[in-house]
């Protein structure tokens, strides 16, 4: 990715910070001045990937806009754990929309700012995968096709976690949720359903689409910064592991995001105007089992007996991603 040209042999640029880098090259999250847009005291679970991803993204957007930022937030975990009435964890102007209309609300905020001539104040909309890929999808598509000046960030934890882990159109095949139980001949979520919203966003040919994860903060920050340098509709899709819904240990949140990207199950790439411009190469390839076996939502693939045929189908998904996005082509780390 574009910021990793500086090479330090001790840690490369894999760590959050690096005392050997010049101030300008350091990540937002490593600085004392980061805004902590999502403040302490929020009620997210231990090891919440969404809380982490939201702070990474919004802090980077704050730096990129010189703190001139307004956020609209769909209903969902992020909204619930950050703003139980009357307190808030947000240290930015922030508005709660309905579950399904946050893209439209953000569009309205952007329109109001334009009318008032405040072009320096920028707007982000944010929501979970349920509010984005299911309920808010119509508003989102409208925001894309009108090319409204909004950065929409989807924090994807692959199900409706806030309401008790129900399946969404971002839930991966075989994952157990409350509505796709690990029972019957095809336990868990079925193959062949769901949608790939980053690719759908690209089909709108909007100026900028990217995916990222909480396992690579420098990459995530670079994408938010890039997005804020562009006007028009932009979309960033961030994988945020959920210890509660995935049945994983809270300390494994970053590791799971890393395994998702290193296995190829979650491809990390960038696209402009409908064309892929860059992708994050796999550094140490791992089989999908390493990722799956740390999560109870996939436990039925391993117990009572190992279902190698199903795992092979998931491996095929990863291999297809690697091929499709060129995740292993040349290069080093």
């Amino acid at each position: 990715m574009r910021t990793s040209h500086v090479k330090f042999y001790q840690t490369g640029t894999f760590t959050v910070g690096n005392r050997l880098l010049s101030e300008d090259d350091r990540s937002v999250q490593s600085t004392l001045e980061r805004t902590n847009s999502l403040n302490s005291g929020h009620r997210a679970c231990q090891g919440c990937g969404e809380a982490l991803g939201a702070r990474y993204a919004i802090d980077a957007a704050m730096r990129a806009t010189d703190n001139q930022l307004i956020a609209a937030n769909a209903t969902g975990c992020l909204e619930v754990f950050s703003t139980p009435y009357p307190e808030t964890s947000w240290q930015i102007p922030w508005i709660h929309s309905l579950f399904g209309n946050t893209a439209a609300v953000a569009t309205g905020v952007a329109a109001a700012l334009r009318v008032k001539g405040r072009n320096d104040t920028r707007v982000v909309a944010q929501g979970g995968d349920g509010g984005t890929t299911d309920i808010g999808f119509g508003c989102l598509s409208g925001m894309f096709e009108r090319n409204d000046d909004v950065l929409y960030i989807c924090y994807d934890n692959e199900a409706y976690m806030n309401t008790g882990v129900q399946r969404s159109s971002a839930t991966p095949p075989t994952a157990r949720t409350a509505t796709s139980p690990a029972k019957g001949p095809e336990p868990g979520n079925v193959f062949g359903q769901g949608k790939n919203v980053p690719m759908i966003a690209m089909a709108h040919e909007i100026p900028y689409v990217a995916t990222a994860s909480v396992a690579d903060v420098r990459d995530l920050e670079a994408k938010v910064t890039r997005a804020m340098s562009i006007r028009g509709a932009r979309y960033i899709h961030i994988l945020v592991p959920c210890p509660l819904g995935w049945g994983s240990e809270p300390q494994h949140t970053v590791r799971l995001a890393r395994l998702a990207t290193e296995s190829g199950l979650f491809p990390v790439f960038e696209a402009e105007h409908g064309e892929i411009t860059d992708r994050r190469l796999i550094r140490r390839k791992v089989p999908v089992e390493e990722y799956l076996s740390l999560q109870k939502r996939f436990a039925h693939l391993f117990k009572p007996e190992l279902k190698m045929d199903v795992i092979a189908r998931l491996q095929a998904v990863a291999d297809r991603n690697i091929r499709r996005f060129g995740l292993m082509n040349g290069g080093d780390d």
Binding site: V16, G17, N18, A44, L52
Partner: peptide
């Protein structure tokens, strides 16, 4: 060695640099 990783990965901003 002050790589800031703990400071970065805390979801609760509970690491003070």
């Amino acid at each position: 060695f002050e790589c800031d990783t703990c400071y970065g990965v805390c979801p609760d901003n509970a690491v003070i640099k």
